[in-house]
Amino acid sequence: MPSLNYVAPATVQEAVRLLAGASGLAKVLSGGTDLLVQLRSGRTRPELIVDTKKIPGIIGIREENGGFVIGAATPGMALFEHPTLKQTWPGVVEAANLIGSKQVQGRASLAGNLCNASPAADSVPAMIAAGATCLIAGSDGTRQAKVEDIVTGPGRTSLARDEFIVEFRLPKREPRSGDAYLRFIPRTEMDIAVVGCGVCVTLDANGVCTAARVVLGAVAPTPVLVPEAAAALVGHKLDDATLEMLDAAARRACNPIDDKRGTIDYRTKVAGVLARRTAAIAFNRASGGKSAGGH
């Protein structure tokens, strides 16, 4: 068995060079709340671990052009404690804060949650709904990508072996817009989503939806952006007929598995219910309400 090497480079370039030069499996470490568990269980046996946390700027949040730039390894508690992020993107912050426990929140990062590529990752549908992008560093420099283009299957991403995520960008919030995330778990806390749903909507002055993004988690091999569900909202107010169309579109987008955590029928049904409930919170926020998330 090859021995495990750990390096903590101080620059993006050095990290990319190390990843590119690794002969075997190399893993990027940010919070480590998934990676360390997988190392321990033997599920992954990398030759090299590149810890990114020493790279300046990779932990931290800054406002830029009305939007937010969030360092890839920024822990969930830092998102929670940021003075303005939560008011601006409450759905994203609430989703990130659902990951694990308070202790886990001290470490767990958006980049880790995304690149672990679990279909049930909580922060990912919320980030996709918010239209988040990420800045990816690699041997050829940096590139921007949409968050929805990262996960390609359970445990798989579109990142090349020499690439890693440096930061996320949340756009400037449109006026009269709002986002929300809900997940459903059998237990009340500390569990993996059976279904997750992120919704971001923009309304006109009359409360009619002008733009929407609806994303489902844990109902397919990857988080799913559902344009049909968004189309059910656009041009409508939040009324029963609209919610019914949204519910149906969300259910049609489901391609879940049967497992001990939930059956196909059940996940599909709950996806529709969650889409309705999440949309209601997002509409409420967009129209200036202070509706709390969670359930």
């Binding site: 059998p186 237990r187 009340t188 806390e189 500390m190 569990d191 993996i192 001990k260």
Partner: peptide
């Protein structure tokens, strides 16, 4: 409401041998 040890019928292996997947009540429950 929660507790059940799941066994893979083919191998006889317990598949939720941890307290993340073997659900016990948390305070909020």
């Amino acid at each position: 409401l929660f507790e059940k040890t799941e066994v893979d019928a083919e191998t006889g292996r317990i598949v939720n041998a941890n307290i993340a997947e073997y659900l016990v009540p948390v305070n909020a429950d």
